[in-house]
Amino acid sequence: MPGRVETSRATAAVERPVALVTGATRGIGRAIAIDLARTHRVIVGGRDPETVGALVTELGDAAPFAVDLADEAHVAAAVAGLADGAGADGIDVLVHSAGVIGPIAPVAASDRAEFRRILELNVVAVADLTARLLPALRARRGLVVAINSGAGHNAGPRSSVYAASKFALRAVTDSLRAEEAPNGVRVTSIHPGRVGTDMQRELRAAEGGEHEHERYLEPDSVAATVRVAVDLPPSASVHSLSVRPFG
């Protein structure tokens, strides 16, 4: 993982594009935030204020967005405070990296409360936050990036809850892309295979298997795919991109 991003006073004084990354304090989201900090002022999204603050300090030219995405009132208050807290009157990039896996179980053992919890975090929270930030994204003709999954295309056994949320997330991004194209907002859906993160360890433990790090993507590889979408000229757009471990 790259180390501290050094930002000189001269660089910080120059207005830089703004990127808000949810789930930025660990795994894929952290890799994305660190990579984007090379060129953007990053708004660090996360649930724990302490870990959010630590990454803000590490990045230098950054601002906190410590919020529980499942709490509608908390999200509304945090978005309302963005202009003052981050000094941003627009957002150039919004990356949805926060998400949860949920139970690894067959449909026959489905739990209604768990279905609701996973859909709330992986789908409803994404749609809600995006809707609240659309005026800021339209102001900069910005980009929305959703970190989806291979499960957003194919559902295997015992993955109904997670896959359902990722299929639904793909539907949200497909609709958003069509709706916001006239407003200049681009929408990209990234579909990684298995990534070597703490979440992957939790998944393999639930599956009863070993964590085989060498067979997984590195978080930096997913961050690189986000960078492709971010660096395209405004006349081009990545609609959907799948990335898998090689070999």
Rank of each mutant, 00 (worst) to 15 (best):
G29A: 12
I43Q: 01
A37Q: 07
P17C: 02
A19Q: 13
A54Y: 12
T57F: 01
P17N: 05
A19K: 05
I32Q: 05
L55K: 05
T22N: 10
G23L: 10
L36V: 13
D35V: 03
E50V: 12
L55T: 00
T51L: 06
D35N: 12
I34H: 09
V56N: 00
T57K: 05
R30D: 15
G45V: 08
A33Q: 07
T51I: 06
G45W: 03
T22I: 11
P17K: 03
D35F: 08
V56D: 00
A24L: 09
E15F: 05
G27Y: 04
G27P: 13
A33H: 13
I34C: 10
A19V: 10
P49Q: 12
D48V: 02
T39L: 09
V52S: 02
G53F: 08
I43M: 01
L36S: 04
R16I: 09
G46N: 04
V56I: 01
I32L: 11
R26V: 03
R16E: 01
G29L: 13
A33P: 06
E15G: 00
R16Q: 14
G23N: 07
H40K: 03
R41G: 07
G23D: 07
V44I: 02
G46Y: 10
G29C: 15
G45R: 04
A33Y: 10
H40W: 01
G46Q: 04
G45H: 04
G23K: 13
E15Y: 00
I34W: 13
I43N: 02
V56Y: 00
V56L: 00
L55F: 04
R38I: 06
A24D: 13
G23M: 09
G53H: 01
R47H: 10
E15K: 15
A19I: 06
I43F: 01
A31T: 14
I32Y: 15
T25V: 11
G53C: 01
L20D: 11
G46D: 04
T25D: 12
P49W: 05
R26W: 04
R26A: 15
T22S: 15
L36N: 07
L55G: 02
D35T: 12
D48N: 09
P49T: 05
I28Q: 07
A24H: 08
I32S: 11
G27W: 03
A33S: 14
A31P: 08
V42N: 04
R26Q: 15
L20C: 05
R16W: 01
T39W: 11
R47P: 08
V21T: 08
G23W: 15
T57L: 05
V44E: 00
H40V: 09
P49F: 03
A54G: 00
A24R: 05
A31E: 15
G27A: 13
G46I: 03
H40C: 11
